[in-house]
Design a protein around this nucleic acid. Sequence first.
DNA 1: ATGACAGTAACGGGGCGTGAAAGTCT
DNA 2: AAGACTTTCACGCCCCGTTACTGTCA
Lengths: 164, 164
Amino acid sequence: MASTPLRRTVTRVEVATDRGVFMISVAAELAHMHPQTLRTYEARGLIAPKRSPKGTRLYSHQDVERLRHIQQMTAELGLNLAGVQRVLDLEDEVHGMNARIEKLEARARDAETELAERLEEVRRSFRAELVPFSKPRPGTELARLADVRPALRANRQRRGRSER
Amino acid sequence: MASTPLRRTVTRVEVATDRGVFMISVAAELAHMHPQTLRTYEARGLIAPKRSPKGTRLYSHQDVERLRHIQQMTAELGLNLAGVQRVLDLEDEVHGMNARIEKLEARARDAETELAERLEEVRRSFRAELVPFSKPRPGTELARLADVRPALRANRQRRGRSER
DNA sequence: ATGACAGTAACGGGGCGTGAAAGTCT
DNA sequence: AAGACTTTCACGCCCCGTTACTGTCA
C-alpha cells in the first residue's frame, strides 16, 4: 500500500450568491462565530438562512457576508443586537437613497444637455430651410432665434443661484 | 396672614433652540432621565451641552430633543450606547441625503419645464414673424418646427425607460 | 448652613455569547 | 455506532443606569 502522498488541490465553483450552500458549522467558521450564535440571530430575525428538506439550515454567501457585517458591529463597535437591527435598516435606506440620487443626477444632466441639443437642432433646421437669408434685423424675434446660446447661458445662471 | 391663594400662571418666552438654558437637573427631568446619565452621555460624546462661566452644564432645547431621542432608542428599542452613536450618525446621513434629493428633484423638474417653455417660445416667435404662412409641407423641417410637442413626448419616454 | 452643582466609585439587573444536555437522522 | 444536526437551559461576563460618597460654590 505505498499510496502516493495526499495532495491538496484547489477547485473553483460558480454559485449564486443567494443560494444556500453552507451548513451551520461551516457558516459559523467562515463568519468567525459560534454556531449557537447563528441560531440566536435567526430567532431574532437578523438573518434568514434557507432550510434543507431535512430542516438543517443552509447559509448563502450573502448570508455569510451579512454575518460578518454583524460580527464587525458587535465585536468591534460594541453594538447590541437591537442596535444592529436598527443600523441594518438604516443602511438599507441609505443605499436606496444613494441609488435614487444617482438616477436623479443622471436625469438632471440629461435634461440639461437635451435642452441644449434641442435648441441647437431648431436653430440648424431654421437656417437650413430659410437660407439664403439676410441677417435678421436686430431686436426682432428672428434675430434672437438665430442664436439661442445667450438664452441658454441666462438659463444656467438662474438655476445656479438656487443651488448648494 | 390671610394671604391670597397662590395662583399658577403661564408665561411664554422666545429662546433660540441652540441656546443653553436648562441646568442639568431641569434637562434631566424634561428628558425623563437621571442627571448622572446625562453626564455619562457627555463623557461618551453623545451630547455636548454648553457650560456656564462657573462650569455648570447648560442644555439647549435641541439638546433636550436629542436626549429624548436617545432615551427613546435606549428605553423603548433597547439599543446600547454604541448603537445609539452609530444610529445618530446614520440618521444625519439620511437627512443630508434627503435634502440632496429634494434639490435634485426640483432641478430636474425645472430643467424639463424649462425645455418645454423654451420650445414653445420658439414656436410662438416663429409663427408671429412668419404669419401669414401656409401650412408647411408635411415631412419638412418646418412642419416639425410648427409643433414641437411630439418631440417633447418622445423625449420623456426615452428618459422614462431608464428610470425607477 | 442649605442646596445644587461637580466628579469618582460601587452595586445590580439585563443582554448575549458560550457550553452542556438530550433528542433525531444518516 | 458515530457524528452532525436540532432545541432548550444555565452559567458568566460586561454594559449601563442608578445610587452613594465627597468636594466646591453661592
